Simulated scan of single mutants.
Amino acid sequence: MTTMGRAVGVLRILLVLLFAGLVVAQVAILPGTLAHLAEEEPDLAYLRWPMLAFSIVELVCVQVVIVCTWKLLAMVKADRIFSEAAFAWVDAIVWAMGTAWVLLFGVFVFVTTVVAGPGLPVLLFGSVLAAGVLVLLMVVMRALLRQATTLRTDMDAVI
């Protein structure tokens, strides 16, 4: 087995574990945690359901990225990554990450108007910046995949 084959295998195992952890968080951890927080802080209880919806949608976006990455890994293993079929999966990753970023930015704006202290808004601002970098990085990676696919198609035509 090649180094790439081993890396793909290990990555798939980690993706499965991450996906399973996200499902557990969506089903068991988030609802209970937010219910407990609503009991502990009654003045913020109105945020329980919006925060649950936000959290679940954000985790679904991560799950979409995981599934798309899995499909792209299958294409890498089959040496079909430089094909038009890969762009559907990369586009889905970009859209999921973009959606997650827009939602995170919305929460940042909301929290900035509600919270008095600087701690949470600064943390969210850093998260918004980091997420924006990741989205733009994926856009650049998509453009690189487009260039590589074009070059591979040209090389296949020459050979």
Rank of each mutant, 00 (worst) to 15 (best):
V62A: 14
F125R: 08
D43N: 10
D79W: 08
G126V: 08
L144D: 15
A130E: 06
V60Y: 04
V115R: 03
F105L: 09
K71V: 14
P121Q: 07
L137V: 13
G9T: 13
L104K: 12
P121R: 07
G5L: 09
A92T: 08
V94Y: 02
L136K: 12
L59M: 12
V111I: 13
A20L: 15
A28N: 12
A7R: 15
L73S: 06
V27Q: 11
A131C: 03
T149H: 06
L18H: 08
F87A: 09
L144M: 14
A7P: 09
V114M: 07
C61K: 05
I13F: 09
D79G: 10
T149I: 09
A20D: 05
L14G: 10
Y46C: 01
A88L: 14
V16T: 06
V90H: 02
G21M: 11
L44C: 02
L136G: 02
T99S: 14
Q26F: 02
V115F: 10
F82K: 06
L30P: 01
V115C: 03
T150V: 14
F87Q: 07
V133F: 11
F87M: 08
Q63R: 12
T99Q: 02
R152I: 03
M155Y: 15
L103Y: 06
M155N: 13
L104D: 12
L17S: 12
A53R: 03
L17T: 08
M75F: 01
V133C: 01
V16P: 06
A157H: 10
V94M: 06
E41F: 00
D156F: 05
Y46G: 04
S127G: 14
P121V: 08
I159L: 11
M75G: 04
W49Q: 00
V60I: 06
Y46M: 11
L145I: 10
L129M: 08
A35E: 01
G126K: 13
M141D: 15
P42T: 04
L11I: 11
D79T: 06
C61M: 13
R146Q: 15
V135S: 05
F125D: 03
G98E: 08
A20W: 08
A53W: 02
V107C: 02
V139P: 10
A100C: 06
V8Y: 10
F87Y: 09
L15N: 13
V64N: 12
F110R: 04
D43P: 01
I81F: 11
R48Y: 00
I81R: 04
